[in-house]
Computed example of a mutant assay.
Amino acid sequence: MNKRLYLYGFIFSESGQNFTCKGLDGQDVYFKNRGSLSLAISDFKMTDFSSLPREEFLQYLKQHHQAIEKIMAEYCIIPFKFGTMIENQDQIKKIFTNSYDRIRKKFTLLQDMMELDLMAGFKNFNQVFDEIRELPSIKQFKENVQPGPTPDFYEAQIKLGKMVNSVLDEKRNAFRKVILNRLSYLSADIITNDITQDSMIASLAFLIHKKDHLIFEKTVEDLDRHFEGKIDFRIVGPLPFYSFYTLVLQKGDFKDLDHARKTLNLPEKADLPQINKSYKELSKACHPDNDSHDKDLIRRFEELHKAYQTVMEYMSDNNCSFLKEDFEQWVRVRPVERTNMVMS
């Protein structure tokens, strides 16, 4: 069976040589370092996780999370998406070369932060549901419905259900607004997660400064008193930054890169000064200012700019190889950020 290297995350650490924990299949997790970053990895057999039986898949997922949580107990970590693997040690070097600056900048924002998740739910959901059913508008609608196995009756039942859910959503939103108002001042960002049960009010992820951890917990206690114990609050964490940032491996399209090379009139290998010189000269020739009414000129200029951006994506140590065999070894890490943020 082919061997791979399994990736757990980037660590903000210059050493980590004394750290040990177990990863997938009980393999030792070790660090590969460059500068102020380390990559947490372990040896692993090549596995198609999507084809595994559910129980085996969940067991691997559990091992992935457990390893990351053990690392997080000692280091600041930005985790990789579950199942991220590379082929060999050479790709580790390429990841550092192509991703170091981007990941390092992300750590400048996150090294003093933590994620805390907050679950809020109705303590007595049956009582809340009964109160909704006793609302005058709900009672009046039920009284006007003629029972019986008719299409009108079934439609009325559906409408009634929607009315109840609408009132329930209004209650959730009112509680959620108070919770967010009380906690937002502590948070650099907030993520809303989907609720999975009718009794839930909100599932929120907060990105906060580590120094504010106790204040956050105290504010949640104050919220519990404010709502007179009618809501169950549960704080989960500190957690890795799962809700806000997850790392994935990024590979490109050789056709796009080759088209960009040809657009910029570049050889199969070029350094940054060559690329910039070619882009500057071609930009002058097709700049829209030469003739603002020439649509073809505008199109060529936009295509040139897109080609330049594409080439910049593949730069490595101020050089870019357009050879297919080099491209196939190209790999970079990209942070994926969630989009359902409460705060902008």
Rank of each mutant, 00 (worst) to 15 (best):
V145H: 00
M1A: 10
I68W: 08
M315D: 06
N319R: 08
H293E: 15
E74A: 00
Q63L: 00
G148Q: 02
L52Q: 13
F129E: 07
T84W: 10
E217Q: 14
L61S: 13
D224R: 03
K177S: 11
L304F: 05
R104Q: 12
L58R: 11
Q140M: 13
Q274A: 07
F80V: 06
S292Y: 14
L110S: 04
Y60I: 04
D28V: 02
K162L: 13
I103G: 07
Y242G: 01
T246R: 07
I231G: 02
M343A: 13
F49L: 11
L297W: 02
L323W: 07
P267Y: 03
S243W: 07
N265S: 14
G83C: 05
P53R: 03
V145F: 11
T196H: 15
L247V: 04
L39Y: 02
C21F: 09
S278H: 08
S36Q: 14
A188E: 10
L207A: 09
E303V: 10
W330F: 15
E221N: 14
I298Q: 15
I208K: 12
K139Y: 06
A307K: 10
L214V: 12
A270M: 01
D296N: 15
R332F: 09
L24R: 10
Q59M: 14
R299G: 09
K284D: 12
L61P: 03
Y6L: 03
F125R: 06
Q140E: 06
V331R: 13
L61V: 00
E303K: 02
S184I: 12
